[in-house]
Structures are given as C-alpha cells and as structure tokens.
C-alpha cells in the first residue's frame, strides 16, 4: 500500500511528509499495519537507520512482522494494539536522549496519539517524522461530551459515547491527537444529511 495523498485542507489539519533516513542515530520507530512498508522503504534507502533503532510494530491485520524483524533493529517488538504498546512507547520516549529521531508510520489515529505523547514527553517537533499508510479512518473527539470515537470512516457518524450525530471536521488538535466532531443536526434535530464515505 503506497503513501496516502491527501487533498489540500485547512492549516490545523496534519500533513505527513514521509520518512527520511537520518542515518545511524538513536531512533524510536512505531509502525502500524501497512505502515510497516514505510519502515521497509526507509531501511532500503539507508540500512544504518536500524542500527540504534527501537522498532515497535502493531500488525493490525497486516502481516509484515517477519520482514520487519529481519531488518536488524537494536530492539524489535510486536504489540497487538496501540494501547498494549503504550507503556513501552512512553518508556522509550522518557529514555530518549537528545538527537533521537521518532519515525511514525500508519493510520492518522495512531500517528495523532503517538505525536501527542511525544510532544508531551518533550520531544522537539522537528525530531518527529510521519508517513501515512493504510486506512484513512479518523480519530474523532466529540466536542459535546469529549469522548473519542476511533476509526471513523463515514460522515456524519454516531458518537460512540453520547450518541449525538456528528459531522467530521478537518480541525485537528495535536494535543488530543484527534479531529473535532460537531453535532450535525443541532439546529434541526433529526434532519441529518446522507452518510458519505470519508475521502482522503
């Protein structure tokens, strides 16, 4: 699955420029699903990026584990979900020294949460590289009840917490790692536009 090309949007919507090897520097790598292909491409450009890398892979139904393990990262770990990888990832961020590069590849939901963690841990934004691969599903925060609904692929959608029907905005909070969902029938309760698939 190639890199995702997104249509132009507003200035708070994240962009994912892609991964560029920084050589054999300390690195934390988090790949989810088809994001594995971005790490494989990165290592093909410069195999030395793996020398000091701590690579965590969340397969999410995409089986690239054997190929990733063969890259020879200093540390390699497969995790069944982002939640299960979170404490290990936080420890890696806490242990990171100056000059560490963070490589993130996968869905917007994973990248959004992982960037928020990294910024909260004090990593400078310029040390974070991102590449989008795979699903264009969004992680949406309901502005009304504040609950986050994962993997939203349709617009409008039902908030999985409060049940309001929300439309999908492009407005994105890096702190929350989520897009904003706003009640679509606030002015005309019950009158909801036709459901559409989200486009990149």
């Amino acid at each position: 699955m190639p890199r995702t090309e997104f249509s132009p949007s507003i200035t708070s919507r994240p962009v994912y420029p892609g991964l560029t090897p920084q050589g054999a520097t300390p690195a934390i790598m988090l790949a989810e699903g088809p994001g594995a292909e971005a790490i494989l491409d990165l290592a093909a450009l410069d195999a030395s990026v793996m020398d000091l890398a701590h690579l965590i892979y969340i397969p999410a139904g995409h089986d690239a584990g054997l190929r990733l393990a063969a890259l020879g990262a200093k540390m390699y770990r497969e995790a069944p979900s982002y939640a299960s990888a979170l404490e290990r990832y936080r420890k890696a961020l806490a242990d990171a020294r100056m000059g560490t590069t963070l490589y993130l590849a996968g869905s917007e939901g994973m990248i959004g949460q992982a960037v928020a963690e990294a910024l909260a841990a004090g990593l400078p934004p310029e040390a974070i590289q991102t590449e989008h691969r795979g699903t264009i599903a969004r992680r949406m925060q309901c502005v009304h009840c504040k609950g986050v609904t994962e993997n939203v692929t349709i617009d409008p959608f039902l908030c999985s917490h409060c049940g309001l029907t929300l439309f999908v905005r492009d407005h994105f909070s890096r702190r929350l790692g989520a897009f904003q969902g706003v009640c679509v029938d606030a002015e005309t309760p019950g009158i909801v536009p036709e459901v559409q698939e989200i486009k990149p």
Binding site: T11, S12, Q141, R169, H171, S173, R174, R175, L176
Partner: peptide, 16 residues
C-alpha cells in the same frame, strides 16, 4: 472551543 484549541499555534487555531 478552548478545550480543543488549547496548545495550538496562531495559524492552527485560526484554521477554520
């Protein structure tokens, strides 16, 4: 929403 926009830079909070 302050709760959503807190932590944003000038261009981000004016994005919409």
């Amino acid at each position: 929403s302050l709760d959503f926009d807190i932590g944003m830079n000038f261009f981000e909070w004016h994005a919409p």
